[in-house]
C-alpha cells in the first residue's frame, strides 16, 4: 500500500469529508431535537388526551413505526413535493427523520409515564398540586429518567438512518464518501474512514448516555 499517495489523497479530500461529517451531525442533531419535542407531544396526547385525540395519534404512531425509515424518507421526498410543498432534499430528509424520531420518543415516553405508580399522582394531589404541577415536578422527572436509555438508543439510530438520506441527495457522509471515491478510486480506504467515523459517533453517543445515566441516577 502506498502510504504517501494515501495520505495525500486523504488530505485533499479533507474538507469534503468534514462537510459530510458536519452534515450528518447537523441533520441528526436537529432531527433529534425536533423529533423529541414532537415525541413529547405524542406521548402527552396518548396518555392524557381525549379519546379522539388518542385515536388519531395512535393511528399515526402505528403507521410510522410500521414503516421502514427508508420508505419514510422516500415518501417524504416524493409525496411532499407532489402535494405542492417544495422541499430541498435536506428539508425532506429532516422531516422524515423528525417524524421517525418522534415515533420512538413518543412510544418510549408513553411507556415510562404509564409505568409510574398511581400513588405518585395521588400523593401529589393529596398535597394540593394541580395537574400541571404534578406533571412538571413529580411525573416528568421520573419518566424522563426512565426513558433516557431508550432515548440515547434512538439518537444513535437516527445517526445510522441519516446514511439513507444520501439516496435522496443530502450531502452527508455517505454520499460524500461515494463522491470522493468517484474522483479518487480508493474505496477501501475511504469507506474504512467513513466506517470509523460512524463507529466513533455512535459509540460516543452510547458512552455519553451511560455517563449521564450514572449522574442522574438516584442514590439508594
Amino acid at each position: 500500500m502506498d502510504f504517501i499517495r494515501l495520505f495525500s489523497d486523504l488530505y485533499i479530500a479533507r474538507w469534503a469529508i468534514l462537510e459530510g461529517v458536519g452534515m450528518t451531525l447537523i441533520i441528526s442533531f436537529v432531527a433529534i431535537i425536533l423529533g423529541t419535542m414532537l415525541g413529547i407531544g405524542v406521548a402527552l396526547s396518548l396518555v392524557y388526551g381525549g379519546k379522539f385525540q388518542r385515536f388519531l395519534v395512535r393511528v399515526f404512531l402505528e403507521y410510522v413505526r410500521g414503516t421502514p425509515v427508508f420508505v419514510l424518507i422516500l415518501a417524504c421526498y416524493y409525496v411532499l413535493s407532489q402535494a405542492g410543498i417544495q422541499l430541498t432534499p435536506f428539508q425532506a430528509g429532516l422531516v422524515a427523520l423528525t417524524v421517525f424520531c418522534s415515533s420512538h420518543v413518543g412510544e418510549n415516553l408513553r411507556g415510562a409515564l404509564l409505568a409510574l405508580p398511581k400513588g405518585q399522582t395521588e400523593a401529589a394531589k393529596a398535597i394540593g398540586l394541580t395537574f400541571r404541577q404534578t406533571f412538571v415536578y413529580v411525573l416528568a422527572p421520573q419518566a424522563l429518567r426512565q426513558a433516557l436509555p431508550a432515548w440515547i438508543n434512538t439518537a444513535a439510530e437516527l445517526v445510522k438512518a441519516s446514511t439513507l438520506l444520501s439516496v435522496i441527495g443530502v450531502v452527508e457522509l455517505m454520499l460524500t464518501t461515494r463522491q470522493i471515491i468517484a474522483l479518487k478510486p480508493r474505496p477501501l480506504e475511504f469507506y474504512l474512514l467513513a466506517g470509523i467515523i460512524y463507529f466513533l459517533i455512535c459509540f460516543s453517543i452510547e458512552r455519553l448516555g451511560r455517563r449521564v445515566e450514572r449522574r442522574i441516577s438516584l442514590p439508594s
Binding site: A156, T163, M174, F199, C202
Partner: peptide
Amino acid sequence: NLPIFFLMLV
C-alpha cells in the same frame, strides 16, 4: 455501531 446502509455499500 455501524449503519446497515453503510455495511451494504461496503
